[in-house]
Write a protein that binds this DNA or RNA. Structure first.
Lengths: 133, 133
DNA sequence: GTTATTATAGATAAATAAAATCCTTAATTA
DNA sequence: TAATTAAGGATTTTATTTATCTATAATAAC
């Protein structure tokens, strides 16, 4: 079990956008270069963030991606869910009644992780950062 | 990102062994039947638990698997690590200095989940169970 | 309007990982 | 010795992730 690279890319892009540009759009070309990933692949990932309402895209010359107004609210969990989906990490495939005691434990644990990710915003990070990007 | 089915099988087998037999070994045949999984595949999973020192195997007629003495101590996390390995769930693949602020957040979140899984033992479950298996 | 630039989207390929099977070997008990 | 049971290697199947290629659509600059 691993978080996907796509999630890694998405988180870093969000951090970049949060740290960098309040209004000027950044092209996928540049974002991809920084992360050493192909632009087409990254664009597919960013399209998910657009659909989730976290960033907006501006097409045409001098276009690119930029944060939406609500960016201060966006949590790590929001981003992760936008990329990986929000299905739970564990499915008991054994049929012993409606709720499996094992599943209950694992899901409770997952919830602890999600709680932490829900409380951490990109904006929290930007403050504590000096010159990372 | 999902916990593997192998982990699911391992957890359920441990629950079964904990709930059922204090000393008599249970064959993989029976364990596999209960979980509707092939015996050979399950045996590979159980071998990992043997190597991790959680259960022991008795070969030959009337052989099978049974818990080791320390079974009261075995946590969910132990079992999960035995099957999935204990590498962290997130690797920042971007090189911005030694510690990535994003990685720090995600790993802290992961630690919350692990803490919960570390504190839950199979033996806790058996008590609260009535007739699940 | 034409051209250059930039995102979107579909199809597909390549790489990796997970799940499962098959077959052989080794150990043990009856 | 025969039957039973786990261990282990090799391989296959299936699913998922990662990535590429190509075409389309929108927009700005000229």
């Amino acid at each position: 079990m691993k978080f996907s690279k796509a999630t890694d890319y998405a988180l870093h892009t969000m951090l970049f956008l949060t740290a960098a540009t309040p209004d000027k759009p950044v092209g996928v070309q540049l974002l991809a270069e920084k992360q050493k990933v192909s632009p087409t692949y990254l664009s597919k990932i960013l399209t998910k963030l657009v659909k989730a309402g976290m960033i907006e895209s501006i097409t045409g010359v001098n276009g690119g991606y930029r944060l939406k107004r609500n960016w201060g609210d966006i949590s790590f969990l929001d981003i992760i869910h936008a990329i990986e989906g929000s299905a739970s990490l564990f499915d008991c495939s054994f049929d012993h009644g409606p709720d499996c005691p094992i599943q209950r434990v694992v899901l409770a644990a997952e919830e602890k992780m999600e709680e932490h990710l829900r409380n951490k915003k990109m904006s929290d990070l930007v403050q504590e950062m000096n010159i990372v990007f």
